[in-house]
């Protein structure tokens, strides 16, 4: 298992899910992939399929309709998995915390490993968040990063 554990840390694939965010954080997540920030240098690739993903990046506050979808996606990602909540809304509900259709932050539905605050979270902060998640994963598996 040594090589699988090591390679997972070196090439995590992320899957992005938008709960009910305003798009601000989503376009910053996408901006991370583009030449200026280029998270591929950490071996990170954006995936559309939960079964291929290691890290779930969630933006936006959870509303009554997406809660089920989010739980579904989380369950489909194989273990070990990490969840990064990007943006103030995903952390706590943000400006929408008192809206009638909002349940709150992502941690109301699934366990969250790393919180990245900001409205919208800057790409630097998002990259930092994903790298933090990897460090946590490495520690759990007893692998040097």
């Amino acid at each position: 298992m040594g090589i699988i554990h090591t390679s997972r840390i070196k090439s995590p694939w992320i899957m992005h899910f938008d709960n009910s965010s305003c798009n601000g954080c989503d376009i910053e997540v996408l901006a991370c992939l583009t030449p200026l920030y280029d998270i591929e240098r950490f071996g990170i690739v954006n995936m559309g399929n939960p079964k291929h993903a290691d890290v779930l990046v969630v933006t936006g506050a959870v509303n009554r309709r997406t809660a089920r979808v989010l739980k579904n996606l989380y369950d489909q990602i194989p273990d070990p998995k990490m969840v990064v909540a990007v943006g103030t809304c995903a952390c706590s509900g943000g400006v929408f915390h008192n809206c009638y259709n909002i349940l709150g932050g992502v941690d109301k539905v699934i366990p969250v490993d790393v919180y990245v605050p900001g409205c919208a979270a800057r790409p630097e902060a998002i990259i930092d968040g994903v790298v933090l998640a990897l460090q946590k994963l490495a520690k759990l598996q007893g692998v040097a990063i």
Partner: peptide
Amino acid sequence: CHRGIEKACELNDFPKNIYICERICG
């Protein structure tokens, strides 16, 4: 993606609504 922004705009003071309206779409 429904959050209930129009209702939230009735609950908050009118100067604060600028920040909520900006977050209708990023």
